[in-house]
Simulated scan of single mutants.
Amino acid sequence: MNFNKAEGKRPPLPPFDYESAHLKVRLAEEAWNSRNPQQVALAYTPDSIWRNRNQFIRGRQEIETFLAQKWENELEYKLKKELWSYNFNRIAVRFFYEYRTKEEEWFRAYGNEMWEFAPSGLMQKRYASINDMPIDKKDRLL
């Protein structure tokens, strides 16, 4: 699905049905697995509001900075998202991801996100609750 820069839209657009919500989740998973902060930030409104764990982030520039720092510290990051629920302009997902630190310690993070979309299909709000647990390299799932 291509981002239409001229119209400022990012399909699929709300209102969501099962197919479009599922596609939105797949596209988000692919973008985050790219580990490209600029690419990921384009999926959010310029004034997007995030709560990520205990951090409050506003706007694309803060999103890019946050993600660049995240992926500098979370090496070999790999994410799996699952559609949990959806309605008119909202989607809920559950997810897990794995990463290693520079000290070669492995972690798996589990979480839930609630997303709210603008009519353009850009995400305007993202609320994430995430818990990390250390794992042995041999216990990786991704």
Rank of each mutant, 00 (worst) to 15 (best):
M1I: 13
N4I: 12
A6L: 11
G8K: 04
G8Q: 05
R10W: 13
P12A: 05
F16G: 01
D17K: 11
D17T: 13
H22D: 03
L23R: 03
L23M: 08
V25D: 00
L27N: 06
L27R: 07
A31R: 08
R35M: 12
A41M: 08
A43M: 11
P46S: 14
D47F: 05
S48T: 11
S48M: 08
I49S: 10
W50G: 02
N54E: 10
R60A: 05
R60E: 08
Q61K: 14
F66A: 04
A68N: 14
A68E: 13
N73P: 10
E76C: 10
L79F: 06
K81L: 10
S85P: 15
Y86F: 05
N87I: 14
N89I: 00
N89D: 05
N89M: 04
R90P: 04
I91Y: 00
A92D: 10
V93K: 00
F96A: 00
F96K: 06
F96N: 07
Y97I: 01
Y97L: 09
R100N: 02
R100Q: 02
T101I: 05
T101E: 05
E105Y: 05
A109M: 12
Y110I: 14
E113I: 02
E113Q: 10
P119A: 06
P119H: 07
G121S: 01
G121V: 01
G121M: 03
G121W: 03
L122S: 07
K125A: 10
K125D: 08
R126G: 06
S129E: 09
S129Y: 12
S129F: 15
N131E: 13
P134E: 10
P134A: 11
D136H: 13
D139T: 02
R140C: 01
R140F: 04
R140Q: 06
R140P: 01
